[in-house]
């Protein structure tokens, strides 16, 4: 399969250009690639983990209720068990006491799996960043696909984040060097769970995933 020159959410099928494909589609002939079909199917049936941490979880529930109706995007099946879930929405402050549990849940989820960091706390610690028991961003321990800022983000923002994730899933390749993470045999799927130390988590972050940003300082 040749590599398409452009990076639209729908990679073109084979050597047929998008214009030709549209032309055929108008005549009632659908041409698709396995890659496209695979991404289309996966992106429209994301099952999130029913996993609420703090304030943002209430907005996550609100996104599932009638007014916002996350079911329109095929993601209404909240699974209480990580074994059945595709998407972990880290909705709220991750404390140091909770962080090992979050990593463990992530490890229990089968591939392909995705992570949304919902809200300022999950991204960076947010307003509670100074806290001694607050993890300064869940991306210190697990890889995050989509960040949704806000405190808390509105349900619409969560829906927007979900559609962004759908675009990301649809753009994933089946093979080649740019293949999706779950199709690369060497890519890490499980991450080390931190231990409770005497003063802090051990280690305080996963060095393979996270390095502290270099801060610009005035001379």
């Amino acid at each position: 399969m040749s590599e398409p020159a452009h990076h639209t959410p729908f990679p073109s099928a084979g050597n047929i250009s998008d214009a030709e494909r549209e032309d055929l589609r108008r005549h009632g002939i659908l041409i698709s690639s396995l890659e496209e079909l695979y991404g289309w199917g996966r992106s429209n049936s994301i099952w999130p983990l029913q996993f609420g941490l703090a304030c943002c979880a209430i907005e996550m529930i609100a996104a599932a209720t009638a007014r916002f109706d996350i079911a329109r995007f095929g993601a209404e099946i909240f699974r209480p068990s990580p074994r059945q879930a595709d998407l972990m929405i880290v909705s709220g402050t991750v404390t140091k006491k909770m962080a090992p549990q979050v990593v463990r849940l992530w490890n229990q989820m089968p591939e392909p799996k995705y992570c949304i960091a919902m809200g300022a706390c999950a991204i960076s610690g947010g307003p509670f960043k100074q806290g001694y028991n607050v993890l300064k961003g869940i991306d210190r321990f697990i890889p995050v696909d989509i960040y949704i800022p806000g405190c808390p983000p509105r349900p619409e923002a969560l829906l927007h984040g979900l559609t962004q994730l759908q675009d990301k899933i649809r753009a994933e390749r089946i093979s080649g060097p740019q293949a999706a993470r779950h199709l690369q045999p060497d890519a890490a799927s499980e991450f080390p769970v931190p231990d409770f130390g005497a003063h802090d988590l051990q280690p305080p972050s996963n060095p393979n995933l996270f390095t502290a940003p270099v801060l610009p300082r005035k001379a």
């Binding site: 100074q130 001694y132 300064k136 003063h199 305080p204 972050s205």
Partner: peptide, 11 residues
């Protein structure tokens, strides 16, 4: 006099 483990960036 508790000093938190230093792991947040200065802002």
């Amino acid at each position: 006099d508790y000093v938190a483990p230093d792991d947040f960036e200065w802002e």
